[in-house]
């Protein structure tokens, strides 16, 4: 199985888009070497600005560059852009409706050994409540590359979440990402497993385990958290009668929040979360941390059994 960090897809997509569109500029906040911004700086030196350890300035300046007609990409660790500069994103980017494209790097538990300060487990929640914002959580490097290109070619603000550690290839090279899209990776009739990011591959493993115990699970790569692929998710949840969501993020406000809100309105079936339950992370390898929070195939399968049991009551 091919393993590759999603951050590599991000910078590859950004380079490809910037080669076609000279309005694209990149702002970094002193973590360009760990995200890959130095590759952009090498190819497009006049269009790269490293503002130093100043994430609030980075977002506001990006808004100003958008006002001047550019298509600014910004990137930092997800905690520091989505978190620290949240109000700049809210007011200077989203309220003004400016096309600033935000890369949230080292997101979720992928920041592993750096510990709780560097593990963004809330970024999707705080981004998806912002009007006009599109939130994408691609599953692998190929899809992250496509997400960067879609962000570059689509009007308006984008938040793209990606990680540091290598993850298995899920999507084919040259795949496309559409806001509001989702990929059905496996058909099933008893439970819907909706996953994003590194949990997509784990849900595929869980579906195989569930099949062995007689439960037919559908697996959807719900990479577009906002807008959700609402019709598709409702159709599958309605057919299955229950759902599980899986993302390395706080349960509240993340994929669980998004899917639960949708189901409450359109298809009130049981929904079980696999995520981080209202707590902070800690140091450890990503694999250890995923295990610690039950973000494993076994954890997903248990959640699926609970969901099926609730649905049949």
């Amino acid at each position: 199985m091919k393993l590759k960090p999603t951050r590599e897809g991000w910078i590859e997509g950004l380079l490809e888009a910037a080669g076609r569109d000279d309005r694209i500029v990149l702002l970094d906040a002193d973590v360009s070497r760990s995200i890959g911004g130095e590759r952009f700086a090498d190819r497009f030196p006049a269009r790269h600005f490293n503002v130093g350890v100043s994430e609030q300035e980075m977002i506001s300046e990006a808004a100003g560059l958008a006002l001047a007609g550019f298509v600014p990409f910004v990137q930092s660790y997800a905690v520091f852009c989505a978190g620290r500069a949240w109000e700049q994103i809210r007011t200077s980017v989203c309220h003004m409706g400016l096309g600033v494209k935000i890369g949230g790097a080292h997101a979720g538990l992928s920041a592993g050994p750096d510990g709780a300060t560097h593990q963004a487990l809330e970024d999707v929640a705080v981004m998806r409540v912002l009007p006009r914002m599109t939130v994408l959580v691609p599953a692998d490097s190929n899809q992250t590359r496509a997400a960067a290109i879609t962000a570059a070619e689509t009007e308006g603000p984008f938040y793209v979440r990606f990680g540091r550690n290598p993850v298995p290839e899920i999507c084919p090279e040259g795949c496309r990402v559409v806001p509001g899209g989702a990929d059905v990776l496996r058909e099933g009739s008893d439970v819907l497993l909706a996953a994003a990011g590194a949990m997509v591959g784990i849900c595929l493993d869980a579906a195989s385990m569930l099949q062995a115990s007689g439960i037919s699970a559908a697996v959807v790569n719900a990479y577009s958290i906002k807008p959700l692929a609402a019709d598709l998710l409702v159709e599958l949840a309605s057919r299955c009668g229950c759902a599980v969501t899986a993302m390395d993020h706080q349960e509240a406000g993340g994929l669980f929040g998004a899917v639960s809100e949708l189901m409450a309105l359109r298809c009130p079936v049981p929904v079980e979360p696999v995520g981080v339950p209202d707590s902070f992370g800690e140091s450890g390898s990503p694999e250890e941390l995923f295990a610690r929070f039950g973000l494993t195939a076994e954890g997903v399968a248990s959640a699926a059994v609970r969901a099926v049991s609730r649905a049949s009551r």
Binding site: S60, E61, G64, L65, L67, A68, G69, P72
Partner: peptide, 24 residues
Amino acid sequence: DSSTGSLGQGFAAAVGLARGLRLS
């Protein structure tokens, strides 16, 4: 030329705007 109201943000956006105008 910009929406404003949250203090500090308009100035930082102005710096970005100046950077962009110079670049163009």
